[in-house]
Design a protein around this nucleic acid. Structure first.
Lengths: 340, 340
DNA sequence: TTGTATGCGTTATCAT
DNA sequence: ATGATAACGCATACAA
């Protein structure tokens, strides 16, 4: 059965009593081979337990069936669920997933470019908003690539993400429908497009309800920044009845700060987040937030990349998935009751 | 600069005006080559931006420098931090990390054996406690493999984990030192060795303090099972003052159940967990638990595997890292106050 | 429909 | 210290 050295195409050919060319054809172009021979070959494959040597194949083809997935931080809790989608889709099409994380280190990014080259990877999935390798030099002829979450700096690379505007809009709309009029937005001043779009959704919602622009504070997306923003608001004595946060971490910070000051959520204040990270459902109160369909994003990103590899058709440049509002317990009517 | 087709060893040889054999030597056995030639070669490499074609190399060597990491569920939040350790260590030694998840599906496991073969992976990191491929057939000659968290069923494979007994011991000892005497253990009836060991630590702690064996309930490690175990205890009207849980999920379930019944933690009951999953620090109250040094586990596992690959020395069979007790706010003295 | 033969880029063996 | 060359396993152009 499993002999010391893996069976090669020659072993199969010998047993099937055909040439190696025929074996190769039987595998890759079955219709070009007589039914009877095909049968013999398949039997021989079964007997030997033959598996194509991917290295030899890639060498011959000048391209491997591996996809390199580069993320700034593979330890990010959001990353794994995306990875699931990526991996499933890749595997289903006979591709392997090679992972690497850059730790936001440009040097490391360059290393990965070499790596990519060395492994003749067929394509690239990019998690960072920016190209991990020096833009200028490489941008010209980049391998088939797909971004996840947001456009890759310098453009030209299609990406799969979530409709942040719509997601944010759903959150404000909920708040407004509960009767809130003074709604603060705790944003993220980083340049990530996703964050800017969430703010856009917030503003659009306000505008649609005829509410003049409200309080916007920019943090940096961390728990701490949520807490800080809250303190600022208290200092300015300019309190909203609801806090709409650019992500769940920020919302967590706000919730923690509110609790520390002795307030109850959602009785005294309402809070919403964005992303639906795992702990969102375990906070007290559990957080009303906007869910990123992570596995689906991974799946779509990989599917798009694979499509680019087979067709040479110009890919869609942007695929936005529909985010869902996850209603939990951090939102209620404002203290004075539902205004209208 | 970055030409349409990557530079090969021949390009380098031509520019350096040496043979390809010399280039190869200059790279892999620099001491066997004259200093002056070495210099020329290095310059040529710099000029061309040459990177070894990993496919060709692997084909020639009969083995690639890729490590296959197989986990039952790469979406598990615990997985990513381990992955960081694995990836860093691998990369530092010039290895790539190929990932796959079996979804606990035996069929999928078999598929990965083929995959492993096809990619000529140099080694295997196993997350499951059991071999993903049919044991009997393959066990005989398995590739160099290392388990993570716990021994791989059927043994023979070294693994890196945490000292569960010691970790559990630290938790009971804390509880005991706070004055608790009636300490329930909510376990996990699954066959995972780690879980059994945690119970062992619990019993050892009790024994050391001269406390007769207490209440042990077996769940299945889920949030729900924690809640259920709690209900059973209430039904039996046989309440402890502290709940020591086999993992954080279970502890979460217990905490939720306690809260639902209107009790305060840690005033009415103390609760401990194990693992230190991300949400442990965000629960209210934050959970006192035992931390798995995840990144370190990954790092050690990969280091061990790599060592096995270079030395052919028989590896240590078990590496147990020291777990740390993370003291947060879910433990206090029992209601009656610290006894004796 | 099938077989023969070439080359993909390396490393290692054997000469020199 | 260096060079020529074979072989790794495969896919395909070309011949039959």
């Amino acid at each position: 059965m499993s002999n010391s050295t893996p069976a090669t195409i020659e072993d199969v050919a010998r047993i099937a009593e055909v040439s190696i060319a025929t074996v190769s054809r039987a595998i890759h172009m079955p219709e070009k081979v007589a039914k009877s021979t095909r049968l013999k070959v398949n039997q021989a494959i079964a007997i030997t337990g033959y598996t194509t040597n991917a290295m030899a194949r890639s060498l011959r083809l000048g391209r491997s069936n591996m996809i390199l997935v580069v993320a700034p931080d593979i330890g990010d809790p959001n990353f794994s669920s995306i990875l699931v989608g990526l991996e499933n889709e890749a595997r289903a099409h006979g591709y392997g997933v090679l992972i690497g994380h850059t730790q936001n280190d440009a040097q490391r990014g360059l290393e990965y470019l070499k790596f990519f080259n060395s492994y003749q990877a067929a394509g690239l999935i990019l998690f960072t908003g920016i190209l991990p390798f020096g833009h200028q030099a490489v941008t010209a002829r980049l391998p088939p690539s797909v971004g996840v979450f947001e456009p890759v700096f310098n453009g030209g690379i299609p990406y799969v993400g979530v409709d942040d505007v719509e997601g944010a809009r759903k959150a404000v709309d909920l708040l407004i429908s509960e009767g809130h009029r003074r709604i603060a937005f705790i944003g993220d001043s980083n340049t990530r497009l996703a964050y800017r779009r969430r703010r856009l959704g917030y503003e659009a919602g306000l505008a649609a309800a005829g509410i003049p622009s409200n309080l916007v504070l920019e943090g940096d997306g961390t728990v701490e920044s949520g807490r800080l923003a809250l303190e600022q608001l208290f200092m300015r004595d300019d309190l909203p009845t609801a806090f709409m946060c650019v992500n769940d971490q920020t919302a967590l910070g706000v919730a923690l700060g509110l609790k520390a000051r002795g307030y109850e959520i959602p009785d005294d204040f309402s809070v919403t987040g964005f992303d639906d990270i795992p702990q969102a459902s375990f906070m007290t109160p559990s957080l009303t937030t906007v869910r990123q369909p992570r596995t689906a994003i991974g799946k779509h990103a990989m599917a798009l990349l694979l499509a680019m590899l087979s067709d040479r058709a110009a890919p869609e440049t942007e695929i936005l998935l529909r985010p869902d509002l996850v209603v939990r317990n951090s939102v209620g009517p404002p203290p004075g009751g539902k205004k209208r």
